[in-house]
């Protein structure tokens, strides 16, 4: 276990170094005249990768929070869509406010509604012992239905988050352009990866959360309120998924479309599994998946027609199947996932 982990992180670090080197070479030297190299390593490809990855990172973090405490969450897609719609409604109804407060209000409402979706999932799966996978399915259908039913197709959201260059760092060639000239929610997502990693593995809250997901009986025995942790973390997770939806509306697209999450919730799920339920692993997987989307885009822009774009888009899904099939090291889910926890002697 430990060994595979170390090997995986070496590979990841090597990949990162390779990409940074290539990015420098391709974007600063005449190598940029080669179409293929440009497709793979241009600043626009890397920028697109990061942009496409942000909702996946947030979605995967949502999954990690829920599943580490033992609640399976395949409803990320629904939570994200609800967050996106909430952000859109909040933004359109405050169009007359100054831009920044209106956008921040949108973010707040996206967090709130995402959290409520998380609460609903927790109530379904803990209080009413619904199968957690079905509860997730309910959330997806519900969010799709409610957002389509209430969507006012004439409403237009005015304005979205713009890029904020970090002074100094953004002057670094290539890297500055890719990493340090981004809109605020992108920075937030990257910071959250670090925060949640530290939270899960270096704080009391994290230890207790993980105990609830691995061995709830043991956690209960030492006085941890298992279901309270499960409620809390599912709500927190829902907020992150809501933020991912908010990102789509307030930062990436600027508007809402029906079903605009378009499977990102499911890809987040895949990123979480591929990343072995670890925040940094999930971020790596999300970047990889974002990269395949960027490739598809760049190939189209560069006029490369030899590879059908549908097959490029398939890569993340096929990679995920391979990953869960255990060809790439074994991923290991939290042990007590999906099981309702009852304290001894308790019955309905």
């Amino acid at each position: 276990m430990q060994r595979t982990l170390r090997v995986t992180s070496y590979i990841a670090i090597a990949l990162v170094v390779f990409f940074v080197l290539m990015a420098f070479l391709v974007n600063l030297t005449p190598l940029s005249e080669n179409t293929w190299l440009r497709v793979f390593f241009s600043v626009s490809a890397l920028n697109f990768t990061l942009r496409a990855s942000v909702p996946l990172i947030l979605g995967a973090l949502c999954g990690i929070l829920c599943e580490r405490t033992g609640i399976i969450n395949i409803g990320i897609e629904g939570m994200m869509l609800a967050g996106a719609f909430a952000a859109f409604v909040a933004k359109t109804s405050t169009n007359h406010w100054p831009l920044m407060p209106s956008l921040l209000f949108g973010v707040a409402i996206a967090l709130l509604v995402g959290g409520l979706m998380g609460l609903l999932h927790a109530i379904f799966s803990i209080r009413y012992r619904m199968d957690q996978i079905i509860s997730g399915t309910v959330l997806i259908i519900l969010a799709g239905g409610v957002s389509a039913y209430l969507f006012d197709r004439n409403a237009v959201a005015q304005g979205k988050f713009g890029a904020v260059a970090i002074p100094g760092l953004s002057q670094i060639p290539v890297l500055g352009e890719v990493l340090f000239t981004n809109p605020p929610l992108t920075y937030t997502a990257l910071i959250l990866v670090v925060v949640i990693h530290i939270g899960l593995f270096y704080t009391r809250w994290g230890l207790r959360s993980r105990a609830c997901g691995e061995h709830p009986r043991a956690a209960d025995t030492v006085g941890v309120n298992v279901n309270r942790f499960r409620y809390m973390n599912t709500v927190l997770g829902g907020m992150l998924a809501g933020l991912a939806g908010g990102f789509l509306v307030l930062e990436a697209v600027g508007q809402f479309q029906e079903g605009m999450t378009a499977g990102r919730g499911f890809i987040s799920l895949a990123a979480m599994i591929f990343g072995n339920w670890m925040p940094f692993g999930a971020m790596g997987a999300a970047l990889l998946f974002g990269y395949t989307q960027a490739l598809q885009n760049e190939l189209l822009l560069a006029g490369v027609t030899t590879v059908p774009r549908q097959f490029v888009s398939m890569i993340p899904y096929v990679v995920t199947i391979v990953a869960v099939s255990g060809f790439v090291g074994r991923v290991r889910p939290p042990a007590a996932e999906g099981k309702v926890y009852e304290t001894e002697g308790e019955s309905e």
Binding site: I74, I133, L269, A270, I273, Y317, V318, T320, I321, S325
Partner: peptide, 10 residues
Amino acid sequence: VIVTIMLNYV
């Protein structure tokens, strides 16, 4: 569940 969701997209 994971495999079939992914196969849906494929």
